[in-house]
């Protein structure tokens, strides 16, 4: 089996027990993706699969044969940060930085969910298009914990990057 990680084709693990997270970190040495809880409770291991955010700690790598994985290492263009990375710096979206790769991958996945109209638990009207309000962003990012408490900066960085003039 093989995976496409940040645009490059790579081998999958020989043992089906290996999680996508361990494969990225231990075999491919892409240590940007973090292991917080290893049980789905913190979001530090969030990566994008074909543009959708998932938890790599609960994913067996074999399940993702042939799929395109994007990790934090795949976002910047050389030394040019992804706009959301730059916004995290500008808005103090982190302190220790441990949760940050997961926060950033998660926010990119969230942006495409919101744009295609996926409602959230706090959406008052299920039929209406969701808005880039703080409340919506907080709910949609609740799967990413930050022990340093940088959540307000994180929401600011996300809004600054994605919110359009219409809803900002």
């Amino acid at each position: 089996m093989s995976l496409i990680v940040n645009g490059k084709q790579v081998h999958g693990p020989a043992d089906p027990r290996v999680s996508l997270l361990d494969h990225l970190r231990e075999d491919l040495h892409l240590t940007g993706t973090k292991k917080g809880c290893n049980q789905g409770a913190c979001g530090a291991c969030t990566v994008l699969v074909d543009g959708e955010r998932i938890l790599s700690c609960l994913a067996l790598a074999v399940q993702y044969d042939g799929r395109a994985i994007t990790t934090i290492e795949g976002l910047a263009g050389g030394d040019a940060l992804h706009p959301l990375q730059a916004a995290f710096v500008e808005h103090d979206g982190f302190q220790c930085g441990y949760c940050t790769p997961g926060q950033i991958c998660s926010a990119i996945g969230m942006a495409s969910e919101l744009e295609r109209g996926v409602p959230s638990h706090v959406s008052a009207d299920l039929a209406a298009d969701a808005q880039w309000t703080r409340e919506e962003i907080q709910e949609r990012m609740s799967g990413n914990l930050c022990r340093c408490g940088a959540h307000n900066g994180i929401v600011d960085a996300i809004r600054a990057t994605f919110a359009t003039e219409a809803s900002a």
Binding site: G40, G43, I54, L55, L58, R140, G143
Partner: peptide, 9 residues
């Protein structure tokens, strides 16, 4: 239920 990442999986 759960989080967006988990609901996606």
């Amino acid at each position: 239920g759960a989080s967006a990442q988990i609901r996606n999986m």
